[in-house]
Amino acid sequence: MASGSQRAGAKLRDREVWAGIALIAVGAIALFGASDLPFMTRQGVGAGLLPRVVAGFIVVLGVIQVAISLRASGPDAGGWAWREILIVLGAVVLFGLAIRGGAVAGVTVPPLGLVVAGPLAVIVAGFADRGARPGELVVFAAIISAVCIGVFRFALGIPVPVAPWLIGY
């Protein structure tokens, strides 16, 4: 009894089982998303043929993967770096919001340009590392942002906004 529930508990953390479940989920979402697309049309192969066949195939692979891994015990998936994910990807999203403005959850962000979005992304992302040193990070953020403005905007001529609120572009 005890060993049975222990085994079931191990299965809940088994990387290989989750890999199979993930495949089934992705395939199922795609099958749902493509369900309104025609398989074949008068002109020939329809828009839905390839996505539905491939999505179905992924579901089948997922089922096989789960079946195989239920029989043998695989390694634990290990801890998830939720803190790092949240901070790094959050920094990326903040960059996107600040660069030319946008609205999220009722808050409207004006177009702030690279002058703000650059240091913002660097500083926020930097805190994902547990050894981050705030002073150093701020200085580094200013320097690297200045370099980016020089390289992307002025050397390469890419029309990325610099500081629309200050200098008009």
Partner: peptide, 11 residues
């Protein structure tokens, strides 16, 4: 760093 930021053309 601050100086190079301000080096962008003045408004």
């Amino acid at each position: 760093g601050a100086a190079s930021l301000l080096a962008a053309p003045a408004p």
